[in-house]
Amino acid sequence: MLLIPCPYCGERNEHEFVCGGDAERMRPPSPQDLDDAAWQDYLYNNTNAKGWVRERWWHVLGCGRWFEIERHTVAHAIRQPEGSGGSDG
């Protein structure tokens, strides 16, 4: 059972959340300038890192806010990302 630290509600059961994936994945600012390979990479490919990852989570069955955490994909440890109390997404 993961306890996800929602910056607004505190630690809650993982059942209340949806994982929104890699926080470093950003929509390219001007997609029309990308070639097909770069656009395909943005649409489908994942870093899928083994180790610490920075992720977006959505407290869908709670306050409804989006925020970021860092999670270790092997140890399942969770920590607050540096300089972030969660973003308002």
């Binding site: 994982c19 994936g21 899928n48 990852v53 992720e55 999670r71 994909t73 092997v74 140890a75 399942h76």
Partner: peptide, 8 residues
């Protein structure tokens, strides 16, 4: 599957 990435 568990609904998030994991190598655990």
């Amino acid at each position: 599957c568990d609904p998030y990435p994991s190598y655990a």
